[in-house]
Computed example of a mutant assay.
Amino acid sequence: MAEPLTPHGFLDGVSRLIRLARLEGTVDVRCLISGRFSMEHEAVGPGTVPFYLVLHGHCTATTGSAAIDLAPGDLLVFSHGDAHQVRVADGRKRRYEDEPGPTFVTRRTVGGGTPELDLFCGHYRFDSAAGVLLFRLLPPLVHVTLDDAAVRLADVLREEAGFDGSGTGVIVSSLCEALLAMALRSRPEQRLDTPALWTAMGDDVLGRVLAEVVDRPGEAWTIERMATAASMSRATFLRRFSTRTGTTVATLLTTIRMMIAADLLTSSAESVSHIARQVGYSSESAFAQTFRAAVGEPPARFRKKSVARD
């Protein structure tokens, strides 16, 4: 008989993976704009993920051939750091000024009266391999209409941004990280325009199975075992998994294991062979090969560089 699965295990699993990524959220610019407006953003390298949060008004983000219309309560995350543009096409183009603040810049239309657009522009930064793997597994664009709880949190962000004084930096950072976690989960009142986002699959059964993988990555997680835990046939499980997550069982399982391994290599003094066993590899050489393919360097070199950075 399969072991009982905890009812909220997947949320805990996602929370753990986000913590492993060691994210730091930052608001760069708050735009309080009226009329026509355009802002370009060049591509950024690994370790930086731009995001936009609309509190009031409407705008459009474009990247490549994709155009995403953003409305109040929408959060858009460029998971792979692609180049993009944010614009408002309607209205008269007006001059704006940048007002530096202790935490971020406020970009405001000169003589614009009540702003037609209230937009937070920021980024998530991380220097962990776990962060690279987490965002690599997400699609290039994550577009979420936040649920009521997240919108209330965004209102707190707006109030704190209006203050922009002592302590605002750390409060804004924490709020940005909380908003990302709330976006990467599935709630009935939350609209997810991104197809097949594994962290918000809206499938309690699959979610709880994956939570068990995050909790015990060293166990033998075969497709058959996962299907049994989900009370499905192997074929049904694979079809449902592919549809809901947009990836394969092997890819997601390997990514989770490598995220945990990268964190252990950075935060513990355990041997590489012991860490390999903890994430499900009886062969140190097989683990090293998989880790190098995922992270770009073998475990020992990765650990040495991580220690040197600290």
Rank of each mutant, 00 (worst) to 15 (best):
A89Y: 01
G246R: 11
L146M: 13
R239S: 05
L76H: 09
D155H: 15
V14P: 02
I223D: 14
R152A: 15
R303C: 06
V205F: 01
T266Q: 14
V214W: 03
G280Q: 02
D98H: 11
V295F: 00
L75Q: 07
L192K: 08
F37V: 02
T145W: 11
R216S: 07
D98P: 04
G218S: 00
G57I: 02
M39C: 10
P50D: 01
H41D: 07
A229D: 11
S242D: 13
F10Q: 01
R94N: 08
L210S: 00
E42Y: 00
G25L: 10
E97I: 03
A227Q: 09
L70Y: 12
R92F: 14
F135H: 12
V77E: 06
D90V: 04
L117N: 14
M182D: 12
G81R: 06
A200H: 03
T168I: 05
H8G: 08
E3P: 07
Q278Y: 05
L253W: 02
L197T: 04
A230N: 02
A276G: 07
E116D: 14
G64M: 11
E159A: 15
G169K: 13
S15W: 10
H41M: 11
W198L: 00
F237T: 03
C176K: 03
K304I: 00
R187D: 00
T199R: 04
S233R: 07
S282E: 15
H58E: 12
Q289I: 10
V110Q: 12
L157N: 11
Y281A: 11
L210W: 14
D127T: 11
V49W: 02
R95K: 12
D203H: 11
E40Y: 07
D263Y: 01
T103Y: 06
P102T: 12
R234H: 13
V249T: 13
L153M: 14
G13E: 01
D82W: 04
A21T: 04
G296D: 08
R30P: 02
M182T: 06
L119W: 06
R187A: 11
S128P: 06
H143F: 12
S38M: 10
F126C: 10
R216G: 08
D74M: 08
V110F: 08
F10K: 06
F241E: 01
L76E: 04
R234C: 09
V54T: 06
R234N: 14
C31W: 03
V295Q: 09
A149I: 05
A66W: 06
E212I: 04
D90M: 03
A61M: 14
